[in-house]
């Protein structure tokens, strides 16, 4: 059965095409493209991706406006039903603002926009999104953000770590994130938010292919579910 995925585009998204290309490359099926103002998601989705970019020009706070857009009500409903949702970069910011994930993404501690490939350690290789990797595996994935400094209170951080909900950590902290956190899962494990861009590491011409295992792993898991 064809893999039925959707990429949501907000005004100001700029990695939606990259995400669509990566999903099509790995699954063989082009994802559906959904506009932020749409009131409904296509039926029977296997996977929803919230791409990177600067939705609504980062007005108020990164991701704050997009989190309240019409389509996000549907995304929240789908996530609650267990549909896998991946948010990358601005998509991660949207997921925290929508309260689908705990914490917040603040301005990088350095104040600088960072755009380079960073090392990540796979902390949890059992989740839907990370089972294509080995636990503790070191991978190289690009980041490109100004607001990637993950913050949550100590109690929340302890809970996230205790429940295995830290998916990825930076091998070298590039933005000030608490406990080097680069990606977190929701409680049920069907929502992943991460600042690094796996969709920018799926072709040798990108300079690396460490992102492929994320998409492939999720697809295999969903196919066998």
């Amino acid at each position: 059965m064809a893999f039925r995925s959707a990429v949501i585009t907000f005004p100001g998204s700029n990695c939606d095409r990259d995400m669509a290309v990566a999903l099509e490359q790995v699954s063989g099926t082009a994802p559906l493209r959904v506009w932020h103002g749409d009131a409904e998601l296509p039926e029977g989705l296997d996977f929803i991706a919230l791409p990177g970019g600067f939705s609504y020009g980062d007005y108020l706070r990164s991701g704050a406006m997009a989190a309240n857009s019409p389509i996000m009500r549907e995304v929240i409903r789908a996530a609650d039903r267990g549909v896998p949702v991946l948010g990358v970069c601005n998509g991660f910011q949207v997921l925290t603002e929508a309260r689908l994930l705990p914490g917040a993404l603040m301005r990088n501690a350095s104040q600088h926009f960072i755009c380079r490939t960073v090392g990540l350690k796979v902390e949890n290789a059992q989740s839907l999104f990370t089972q294509g990797y080995d636990a503790g595996q070191k991978i190289q994935i690009p980041v490109a953000h100004h607001d990637g400094n993950y913050f949550a209170d100590e109690e929340t951080l302890d809970r996230l770590e205790g429940d295995g909900r830290v998916a990825f950590r930076y091998t070298e902290n590039c933005n000030g994130s608490r406990r080097d956190i680069a990606g977190v899962l929701n409680k049920s494990g069907n929502v992943l938010g991460m600042m690094p861009h796996p969709e920018r590491a799926v072709d040798a011409a990108h300079g690396g292919t460490d992102g492929i295992a994320l998409f492939e792993g999720a697809m295999k898991a969903l196919a066998s579910a």
Binding site: L60, R61, A64, N68, T96, E97, P102, G103, A104, M106, F151, A152
Partner: peptide
């Protein structure tokens, strides 16, 4: 609570 502030931070 819903929009103007992010009460996490």
């Amino acid at each position: 609570e819903k929009l103007l502030a992010n009460t996490v931070i």
